[in-house]
Structures are given as structure tokens and as C-alpha cells.
Simulated scan of single mutants.
Amino acid sequence: MKYLLTGVAGFIGSEVCLALLQRGEEVVGIDNLNDYYDVLLKESRLAKLHEFSNFIFRKISVENRDAIAELNAEYQFEYIIHLAAQAGVRYSIENPEAYIDSNLVGFGNILELARKQSVRHLVYASSSSVYGENGKQPFSEQDNVDHPVSLYAATKKANEAMAHSYSHLYDIPATGLRFFTVYGPWGRPDMAPFLFTDAILGNRPINVFNHGNMARDFTYIDDVVDGVLLALNAIPTKHGGMMGSSLNDTTACFQVLNVGNSQPVKLMDFIQAIERFSGKKAKMNFMDMQKGDVPSTYADISQLRTLTGYSPKTSIEDGVQATVSWYREYYGL
């Protein structure tokens, strides 16, 4: 099999897998289908993938070392796209052990699989959360990321350091993708775009943190999929990777890349877009900033653009309209 894709029932994972299957690639997808959010939504995403004969699914947790070893014995992969993780900044405050198990132990198991199989390229999910309270914007891969403000962010920063060490020691080409606030149809129910759409259409109030003084580099799922697939082909070499980052040097086939829209949107403007396309006014509870959160994110995508020609195409208006339309259809409203 050519590809292993972890977190295949997740939001980004399912859409990346669908794109690979549609172009005829063979994919083994794994996911543990945990109940962090609605399992039925995950199964609905998987149902789209099961329509393809070139797709194999295994229900596996990445932190299960024996199960990953069985994959190593059964298949030979050319590429690994590692998107499985315990997600969510706020949940990491409530349940830190889940992040240690999935994001640290699990990533270590995937690195070992990549080493044993000598894969052509390991692409893995990092996060814009690694930038923490960085005051300089837009966020650049060359910025210092030594001050994460959540355990989730700390595990993603650790993933980048772990990948760098494996790349240096074992010549594994590795690319970490720092995703910026991904939204769209089939999105995660724990993220603001879904939460706001769900509540506004259901005539329930929404919690607006930092009293609405927030901005996010909202990135539509189709543009994120394009970024992942383009990065997959931009295999780093010891002398061809991105130079200048605190985690890059000429001793490793390694790079980290921002995947964002590079057009931050004020949170209140995003809410107003949902109001327009839902035809309903939001009832808002204005609240203080939550622990682990940051007021603004803004991606510098020049590195990915230079390497691959990446250019996000979806406007907030089009993206929000598609999201609200999907929600209505999926939930039969």
C-alpha cells in the first residue's frame, strides 16, 4: 500500500483521504473512533471512504504499539500522513493524560514505523497553537515557539522536535504542518464554526470569549487539503528544506510549514457571516478570555507558497455559506 493515513475519520483526515482515493491512490486509514466528539459524525465521514475499493480501514489507536507493529508487518508504505491526535486546546486543560498518550506516545510509535519502513516522506499535523502568545504577526515558521500556553500546543511543539531528531538520526524526510483554524463541511463539533452554526440555527446562545475581541486565520477545508497534498510532494532534503527556523538545520531532511489562509477575520465578522447565511440572529454571552487561548492568529504562508505554489482560494463568505448549507443538509433542517 502506498499511503498510511492516521486519524482517517477526523475532519482533515477524511477529506485528505477522499482526495487521495479520488485520484486512485491506495490508502490504509486508521482511527480509534474515540468519543471525544460525536462518533456518528466520524462514521459518516468513513462511509464516504468505504465506497472506494482502494481504501482499507483499521480501527487502531496510534498509542497502541503492538497494533502499529502489526501494520508494519502487514504493509509497506511509501508515505505516512499522520493526522491522528487528541485535539482541542480547552480539553487539554481537563484531560491532559489523553494528550500525553495520543500526541506523544502515539507520535513516537508513528516515528518508529516511519524509521522501520524507510518511508519517502512523513507528513504530520502540527498546529498554529505552537505560536502561543507570540506578539509578532503574521506568524512565521522562523519565529520562536518556546512558550506554549496549553498542553495541546506543548505536545505539538514536542512532535516537531521529535520529528527533527528522527530525521537527523535516521534520514527520514519529515514535514510538520501548522494548521490554522480549519473549518468547513464535516467540521469538528468542538470548534467555534460548528458550535456557532449549531447554536444559532438551534436558537441557543453562543459563548463569545474575550468579549469578541478575537481574530482567527480561518482556513477552509478544501484549501487545507490542497496544502497537505502539495506539501506531500515537497520532500525536504538536508540542504533543501526551509532554513532559518529554530528547528531547521542542514543536518536533517526536515521542515515545518504554515497552512493557513493568511487573511485573519475578526470573530464578530465571522459570526455575522453565519447570521447572514442562517437567516438568524445570534444570541451572545460575552465572556473573558479562556485559559490556553490567544486573541489572534495570522499565518505567514510564504514558505509553503514558495515551495509549492500554494494559494488558498476560498473566501470567508463562500466558506461559511458552504458550512451552513452542509449543516442544514446533514442534520435535516
Score class of each variant (00 low, 15 high):
residue 2 K to N: 15
residue 9 A to G: 14
residue 10 G to A: 08
residue 12 I to Y: 00
residue 17 C to H: 03
residue 27 V to K: 00
residue 52 F to R: 01
residue 54 N to M: 07
residue 66 D to S: 13
residue 73 A to H: 09
residue 74 E to H: 05
residue 75 Y to I: 04
residue 75 Y to G: 00
residue 78 E to Q: 15
residue 80 I to F: 06
residue 84 A to Y: 07
residue 85 A to P: 04
residue 85 A to C: 07
residue 91 Y to W: 11
residue 92 S to W: 08
residue 93 I to Q: 11
residue 96 P to T: 10
residue 104 L to P: 01
residue 105 V to E: 08
residue 106 G to L: 11
residue 107 F to N: 01
residue 108 G to S: 09
residue 109 N to K: 05
residue 112 E to N: 13
residue 113 L to D: 04
residue 117 Q to S: 11
residue 118 S to F: 02
residue 121 H to N: 11
residue 124 Y to G: 04
residue 124 Y to S: 06
residue 127 S to M: 02
residue 134 N to R: 14
residue 135 G to P: 13
residue 135 G to E: 15
residue 137 Q to S: 10
residue 142 Q to L: 14
residue 143 D to R: 01
residue 143 D to V: 05
residue 153 A to V: 02
residue 153 A to D: 00
residue 157 K to Y: 06
residue 158 A to E: 02
residue 163 A to M: 06
residue 167 S to W: 06
residue 167 S to C: 11
residue 172 I to W: 09
residue 181 T to W: 10
residue 185 P to M: 02
residue 192 A to D: 13
residue 199 A to W: 09
residue 210 N to H: 12
residue 215 A to E: 14
residue 218 F to N: 08
residue 221 I to Y: 07
residue 223 D to Q: 10
residue 226 D to R: 11
residue 230 L to I: 07
residue 230 L to P: 00
residue 238 K to F: 04
residue 241 G to S: 11
residue 241 G to L: 00
residue 242 M to H: 06
residue 244 G to C: 10
residue 245 S to Y: 06
residue 247 L to R: 07
residue 262 S to K: 11
residue 265 V to F: 01
residue 265 V to A: 07
residue 266 K to V: 09
residue 266 K to F: 12
residue 271 I to T: 08
residue 272 Q to E: 14
residue 273 A to V: 00
residue 275 E to T: 03
residue 277 F to A: 02
residue 277 F to K: 02
residue 285 N to E: 10
residue 285 N to C: 05
residue 289 M to V: 03
residue 292 G to P: 04
residue 296 S to M: 15
residue 309 G to L: 07
residue 314 T to L: 00
residue 320 V to R: 06
residue 321 Q to L: 12
residue 323 T to Y: 09
residue 328 R to E: 14
residue 328 R to Y: 01
residue 332 G to W: 04
